[in-house]
Design a protein around this nucleic acid. Structure first.
Length: 642
DNA sequence: TGTCCGAGTTTTTTT
DNA sequence: AACTCGGACA
């Protein structure tokens, strides 16, 4: 493979070059925000490509967005002809390993990933069919199950607690239906490697180079997973920054960095502290803020970029949420008039609910936006319904999909009938699909309901034989036509002025695009598409970016607006213990260090929570920053005409 | 037996 | 504001 090694190193500083070219087989890189960490990873991958095959390079990042960005940047360096199948998130790589070894992992070949919502649905079902679970809150049960899995624990047969029993039941159900939740992906692929020495040694041999990004945010199970793959013969490089550890709430343990050094004492450490991203003002703000934290490996970001004409950091004290957003719109228009593309700007917030008003006012002002997160395109009800049909026709035993669409569109099948199906499925330990077939066969229901259910089963079977070998977009097309979904949503759109149908059209379009760009094993096409809908986010590149600060990690923007700088919102009122408060502060640090040129922070004096107007105090983080010698411009609400 | 309406509730962050 | 759940009604 022909890579020009000299050119590759030209744009890097001494430490970055070290990191890219190092031959030592165990390396820890302590990389501050904006210190060119992504650049190092990208160049390292390109560097390795001159010596190793691309399918021997494993690169793990935290989000799919980051993984895609990494892939496309590496491809820019080494050329489009290379594919890096093992660049991805822990979950997507674990999925891939399970996909390939599904039968050894004891999974059906059409196993499907379920998200948290599906998990809750499943748990609710279990709870509702047995009154010994009466007092269990579904959310807590999910939390319990995921935590167990995250620490590698299968249901304990000796433990008779009600939660443990529910866990057992839940796992049985998942196994029966070929469903795998996020935690299960990691645990099961770990067990696969742990229990099968042949498979393990094959991957150990194949993966000559393992690189882990955002190492401070790895969990117990993820670290176990990594350690399984490390041998004395392959190269491991981990990259992290303890000041950016913001996922402890989902099991991340930033002390994995210390544990790693303990487990691999011969590790070489490289520090990257020079910041290439932000102006001096922005860095100072970040540094002064993070100094209020006690638990940290102290490190200070610095830059040669010492321009005295740096833009000041702007703090705007708004009257209310509307005023807050209007101010931002005004700034965005100024930026746009200066000829800067909106995709170089981002509006960041602490939690997803804050995006609602933002969206309304952006639409009013004709400003296009991309939104990331919970309100995910693939999470919309109409999209999930269409996809549930797609899943069900390819995996009849998928109970989640079955229950989701059995009465969509309305077939006059209600709770009573559904409960009969569930009960039979539970007593016989078979899927809902099989149970319904049994019900038809034995004429258990009245003729009327027998017919209704039978028609539904036939519909699914016919759909399968109509579409099974067609392109996905055509499958979707047939589904929405033949099930009556399209008709139903057309009607609903007219009455309630919604755009379900538009979204469905976009889904079909997305499927078309996906298939066009798909360049891996055709056998996995459908599964990959369904996985993509579970993992992925839509995106469009001339729009301003809206996302939570969590989602912004690893990204950078010329202009950054952080909204909702109020006590109880940021820091969240649920984070008032010392440890949690420090994590909130690190989150603020992450938000601030996303900015390249200019940073805005806004505070609203009043806002609506649960439909009630409340008064807010400015976030303590504002004061913690402004106590220094920073160049800050404070603007108080003064203009009521606009 | 299914549907609809109104009362009651509200975990922040993600794969 | 937006969701879920339970009970009255058709």
């Amino acid at each position: 493979m022909v890579i020009n090694k000299i050119n590759l190193l030209k744009m890097l500083n001494y430490y970055q070059q070290q990191a890219v070219t190092i031959k030592h087989n165990s390396v820890l890189i302590l990389a501050g925000a904006g210190s060119g960490k992504t650049k190092v990873l990208v160049h390292r991958a390109a560097w390795l490509t001159s010596k190793y095959k691309t399918d021997s390079i494993v690169m793990v990042t935290f989000t799919n967005k980051a993984a895609n960005e990494l892939k496309s940047k590496v491809n820019k360096l080494v050329g489009r002809q290379y594919h890096f199948p093992w660049i991805g998130t822990f979950h997507s790589l674990a999925y891939k390993i399970l996909r390939i070894n599904y039968s050894v992992a004891d999974l059906p070949n059409n196993f499907q990933i379920i998200d948290n919502n599906d998990q809750i649905r499943l748990i609710k079902q279990i709870i509702s069919t047995n009154n010994k679970y009466l007092n269990i809150i579904p959310n807590q049960a999910m939390y319990y199950i995921n935590k167990k899995k995250d620490y590698g624990n299968r249901p304990n047969v000796l433990n008779n607690s009600i939660m443990e029993y529910l866990y057992k039941k839940y796992q049985q159900l998942c196994n029966r239906n070929g469903l795998v939740d996020f935690s299960e992906l990691l645990l099961r692929s770990y067990e696969l490697l742990n229990n099968n020495s042949m498979i393990l040694s094959q991957y150990r041999k194949q993966f000559t180079n393992i690189l882990i990004d955002e190492f401070q945010d790895t969990s117990y199970m993820q670290y176990l997973w990594i350690r399984k793959l490390i041998t004395s013969k392959n190269n491991i490089m981990v990259v992290g920054d303890d000041d950016q550890s913001i996922y402890s709430w989902r099991g991340a343990q930033s002390n994995n960095m210390q544990i790693f050094l303990h487990d691999y004492p011969h590790t070489n450490i490289i520090k990257l502290e020079e910041n290439y991203r932000s102006t001096n003002n922005i860095l100072q703000a970040a540094n002064t803020l993070i100094q209020h934290n006690n638990i940290r490996l102290k490190k200070t970001l610095w830059t040669k970029n010492n321009n005295c004409r740096d833009e000041p950091i702007v703090i705007y004290y708004a009257l209310d949420q509307f005023d807050e957003i209007k101010f931002i719109i005004k700034q965005i228009k100024l930026v746009r008039n200066a000829g800067i593309s909106l995709d170089k700007c981002a509006i960041l917030y602490r939690n997803n609910t804050q995006s609602r008003i933002l969206e309304d006012i952006l639409i009013q002002n004709n400003i296009p936006y991309n939104i990331y997160g919970n309100v995910n395109f693939f999470n919309r009800r109409e999209i999930k319904n269409v996809l549930a049909y797609l899943r069900l026709i390819h995996n009849h035993d998928d109970d989640i999909s079955y229950i989701r669409i059995i009465n969509v569109p309305n077939r006059r099948i209600g709770k009573k009938t559904i409960n009969k199906i569930i009960e039979l499925a539970n007593t016989k330990n078979i899927s809902f699909w099989r149970a319904s077939n049994l019900i038809i066969k034995n004429n258990i229901l009245s003729t009327r309901y027998n017919n209704i259910i039978n028609n539904f089963l036939n519909l699914i079977r016919e759909l399968y034989s109509d579409v099974f070998n067609k392109p996905i977009y055509l499958q979707l097309n047939t589904i929405v036509m033949n099930t009556g979904l399209l008709k139903m949503y057309n009607h609903e759109d007219k009455i309630k002025n919604l755009n379900n149908v538009d979204n469905i059209k976009e889904l079909i379009n997305a499927a078309y695009q996906f298939e066009l760009n798909y360049n891996e094993n055709k056998l996995f096409l459908l599964q990959s598409f369904l996985t993509y809908t579970n993992f992925s986010i839509k995106n469009n590149n001339t729009s301003i970016n809206l996302m939570t600060i969590h989602a912004s990690k690893g990204l950078e923007f010329l202009y950054v607006f952080i909204i909702g700088m109020e006590e109880d919102n940021f820091p969240s009122k649920l984070s008032m213990s010392i440890n949690k408060l420090e994590e909130e502060r690190r989150l603020a640090y992450v938000g601030i260090t996303r900015a390249i040129n200019k940073l805005f922070m806004t505070y609203a004096n009043t806002k609506f929570i649960y439909g009630k107007k409340i008064y807010c105090q400015p976030s303590r983080f504002i004061y913690e920053i402004s106590n220094s010698i920073l160049n800050i411009k404070r603007i108080y609400y003064h203009d009521s005409s606009n």
